[in-house]
Computed example of a mutant assay.
Amino acid sequence: MGAPKYQKIKQDLMEEIKDASVNTPIASERELASRYKASRMTVRNALNELVEEGVLYRDKNKGTFVADQRLMKKNTSAETLNKPIDDTYDYNVIYFSSCFSDETVASILEIGPEDRMIRIVRLNRKNGKPSSVEEIYLIQSLINDSDYNNLNKLLDLKGYIDEGSVTQKFLPITVPVKYINLLHVKLNTPIIMVESIIVSKNGTPVVYIREFNNPFEKIIEITT
């Protein structure tokens, strides 16, 4: 039995773009489906794997493009959440709120839209330079009153990891417009967004994090 058709499409695309420049556009799903006489779902499966592996990235309004793979190296992924405790690292909380869950976050944290969550946005700096912006989402009902008023406790991600486990996805994207000035990068700069879900020992999601990394200040390291 041969390999699935999407794997053949994936391999063909990898060969096609191996010498392509960063930000080179990829043919649309419709065009690829016609070229390979395949369904758009089959094509999408091939593209999804290439995006997850960091070969391609998507711009929601423009299409799919060749990613800058120099942004990704191999090592330990969980280290991305463990910020060093030294004089070279500091952060500034730029947003803190208690709000109802939106559909995406509610689904990830396995809560209902009527449940409240805490949303924190912080700018991380290394040697005074912006290294990343983090969006941190916590389930409010799991936080006691004393911790709610202790920002350092809420942001102790290592504590959550030590009491559970973390899964991560590394997604090449272009920098969101709202974070351009914070990260000191230009519009359409390719970056790596790290999505992290921290779960408790019983497998219940407790924290969801999106971290947008400045490629000029921070290299992402991944274990395969």
Rank of each mutant, 00 (worst) to 15 (best):
180 I>C: 08
150 N>A: 06
210 R>D: 07
116 R>K: 11
188 N>R: 08
31 E>I: 09
157 L>I: 12
204 T>V: 15
120 I>C: 01
73 K>R: 15
57 Y>E: 03
127 N>Q: 09
18 K>L: 05
52 E>Q: 11
55 V>S: 01
119 R>S: 11
16 E>H: 13
65 F>N: 03
189 T>W: 02
121 V>W: 05
136 I>W: 00
169 K>I: 01
28 S>I: 02
82 N>P: 09
212 F>N: 01
203 G>S: 08
174 T>G: 08
5 K>P: 01
31 E>R: 09
89 Y>S: 09
182 L>C: 04
63 G>M: 01
184 H>K: 15
181 N>R: 10
83 K>D: 10
157 L>R: 08
131 S>G: 06
62 K>P: 12
111 I>T: 00
34 S>M: 12
2 G>N: 14
163 E>D: 13
35 R>I: 05
148 Y>A: 13
185 V>C: 07
218 K>C: 12
74 K>P: 07
150 N>M: 01
144 N>I: 07
172 P>K: 03
100 F>S: 15
54 G>R: 00
90 D>P: 05
72 M>R: 12
91 Y>R: 08
120 I>M: 00
145 D>V: 13
6 Y>T: 00
83 K>G: 06
44 R>P: 07
175 V>W: 04
11 Q>K: 14
116 R>P: 04
86 D>W: 02
179 Y>G: 03
67 A>R: 04
7 Q>G: 00
67 A>F: 05
61 N>K: 14
50 L>N: 02
87 D>F: 09
8 K>Y: 13
66 V>M: 04
47 L>F: 04
111 I>S: 00
102 D>W: 09
90 D>N: 14
94 I>S: 04
112 G>M: 10
1 M>H: 11
192 I>L: 09
216 F>C: 04
123 L>R: 00
89 Y>C: 10
171 L>V: 13
130 P>Q: 01
219 I>Y: 03
103 E>W: 07
119 R>Q: 10
103 E>D: 14
92 N>A: 10
141 S>L: 08
58 R>H: 05
202 N>W: 13
186 K>C: 13
184 H>F: 13
176 P>V: 08
86 D>E: 02
64 T>A: 06
205 P>N: 04
1 M>C: 12
188 N>C: 07
87 D>E: 14
206 V>G: 05
14 M>F: 03
77 S>M: 10
78 A>Q: 11
19 D>L: 07
222 I>E: 11
206 V>F: 05
6 Y>N: 00
96 F>C: 03
10 K>D: 02
187 L>K: 13
218 K>G: 10
102 D>V: 12
99 C>K: 15
135 E>R: 06
3 A>T: 14
151 L>H: 01
37 K>I: 15
183 L>Y: 05
71 L>T: 08
219 I>V: 07
45 N>V: 01
141 S>A: 13
88 T>N: 11
37 K>F: 12
207 V>G: 00
126 K>M: 07
62 K>H: 14
93 V>H: 02
